[in-house]
Design a protein around this nucleic acid. Structure first.
Lengths: 325, 325
DNA sequence: GTAATGTATGAAATGCGTTTCAATGCAAGT
DNA sequence: ACTTGCATTGAAACGCATTTCATACATTAC
């Protein structure tokens, strides 16, 4: 395959001049420029981008780390990142970790090895300290509410969002409120738990451990929730569910088990995916795609200006009232 | 940042020896190996992967081209690709094209520039001829039923799958059958149309253009379908829908419009996403994740062996009977 | 005891584009 | 006429790991 030196020889110029033409630098006589372009055409020249990466010391690639691309929560974020990256001529490297710490570290290593210029961490299992060790290797943005450190972050204020949902249910007269979350570990889950307890404390109600459902990620998890719910002696009258998918599952299987929504059980969930509209689910809209865009932007800004200014942004949510709760 | 030469100097060996240690080659005295490792440790050495890419002439990166990561159809495929790629130590570069031909060509250019070793095209707008021009730049696999060319491909036999759905409905006594598809262009859509007409011809029924619904991609498109359906003078009694999402939308909005499933309208769809189970949708399961895995495998095999053997694989589907049709 | 193998190591070439630095030519400014 | 400055161009260094080839010594084989 032809390289820049062959082009130079054929066009009768130096490699520097070829490079200038290639990169649209000024100070090249029109005549030589044409000669170079013609030589490139003749030899069917194509840049070897890896040589560019090596020479420039950057790749215009940003990594995205997430547990599972197929989950709507993450694919929505990814979509936002992808759209924005494209607008700025960046490429995306996907790291699907499945919450395997080892794979997460591997992604971070790729940052260190300059495979990519920056990294967006949508969710992670590894400790913050472990991730911090890679901060010097390129901008990293975390999509979670991190404090007491110098990471860039965009996040949803899950505390306030959860409080919003809780207070909405409380205002509707509910006191027996349960909730469904995804992972039990993870900062977001802890934040939600805190908000849950805070809201209950405000109305002097003790949290009931039996009304906390973990590992609720997919629509099919709704079935398990309904079944467990039916088996309970004392049942909650309302559920706050961290995903429309799971809420949909609860509603649909609830129907099969004779659970009437919202009379037997009121439901407020999160996301506002199209399925929530279709099922009439009262939900708290999470701006996931926007979060992806913002995340990319932080990285981009940092790379462009070379200034790493610690920045933490929180995105607003809004409750969309429908009939489920 | 330290490079291989500095390590060599500090360890008192040649760069070749350092490289040998780095790549676990034999013929390095234990004593020197240790010296090298220690030097690497001392200088906090990390490979510059771009130099490796350049020197090796390959990147262990495979590109994935698709219109929209957030669509469950594609995120399911992507998930399969990602899982398999990870197993073999490959990385994934995502090209979200939104069916913009220009962006598609840009992805193909990246293949030519050796940014990646191979490319998986989940769906595309560009002509086959345009894509063919890039075949020499690396293995490309198309996830569609392509004939008369030398592409690698993994696909679902959409013709048979559609026929399966049609015949199922016909056997149930339906003759007034309509269908919903995504894009009207695209090979898959043409294939489906052919199967549709074939099935009707077999029972001597004329296709009705009013019963074809295009641009059905998301759950919310179900609303439009129901509305149009209600406005029709002569209505179909059954619909074949190319996505569970859309079928779900039709069922849910159908309820609001007083359309009883399956009595007023029988529905058979495709995918078998969890939502189909939740809603009791009779659906034809498409092995999307598996398709992603196979696609990666074809590329991998090709890269590993260096043999490009034209290969076209079709994956079987199965009808899962539930209550919607 | 000599040829044939195997082990161990380094110098140098290779992959390829970018960037810096020095040099030349030519026009405007004093 | 002489400095200043911009336009134009090329040589060479740079980024960095891999790989080939040659060399030297140590075994094993016949």
């Amino acid at each position: 395959m032809a390289n820049i030196r062959e082009i130079a020889k054929l066009a009768g110029v130096s490699v520097s001049t070829v490079s200038r033409v290639l990169n649209d630098y000024p100070y090249v006589k029109e005549e030589k420029r044409r000669a170079v372009l013609e030589a490139m055409d003749q030899l069917n020249y194509k840049k070897n981008i890896n040589a560019v990466h090596l020479a420039k010391g950057k790749t215009c690639i940003v990594g995205v780390m997430l547990p599972d691309v197929a989950h709507p929560y993450f694919s929505a974020m990814m979509e936002g990142v992808a759209e924005e990256a494209l607008r700025f001529g960046y490429h995306l490297l996907l790291f699907q970790t499945n919450y395997d710490v080892h794979k997460e570290l591997e992604a971070l290593e790729m940052l260190r090895m300059k495979q990519m210029d920056g990294l967006i961490i949508c969710s992670h299992m590894a400790s913050i300290e472990a991730i911090e060790a890679y901060m010097e290797d390129g901008p990293i943005v975390l999509c979670e509410d991190v404090k007491d450190n110098h990471f860039l972050s965009v996040s949803i204020n899950h505390y306030d969002a959860f409080l919003l949902g809780m207070n909405y249910l409380i205002k509707k007269g509910h006191t027996k409120i349960g909730y469904c979350i995804g992972r039990s570990t993870g900062i977001n889950s802890q934040i939600r738990k805190a908000a849950y307890e805070k809201a209950l404390r405000a109305i002097d109600v003790q949290p009931n451990d039996e009304w906390r459902f973990e590992q609720c990620l997919h629509i099919t998890d709704g079935k398990r929730v309904v079944e467990k719910l039916c088996s309970l002696h004392e049942k909650p009258t309302a559920l706050l569910v961290t995903s429309d998918q799971v809420a949909a599952g609860i509603i649909l299987w609830g129907k099969a088990y004779g659970v009437t929504i919202p009379n037997d059980l009121a439901i407020v969930s999160f996301d506002n995916h199209p399925i929530a509209e279709a099922l009439g689910i009262t939900t708290i809209e999470l701006p996931l795609s926007l979060m992806g865009k913002k995340a990319f932007h932080m990285i981009y800004h940092c790379l462009k200006t070379g200034i790493y200014s610690e920045q933490k942004e929180q995105l607003p949510v809004q409750l969309i009232e429908r009939m489920s709760g």
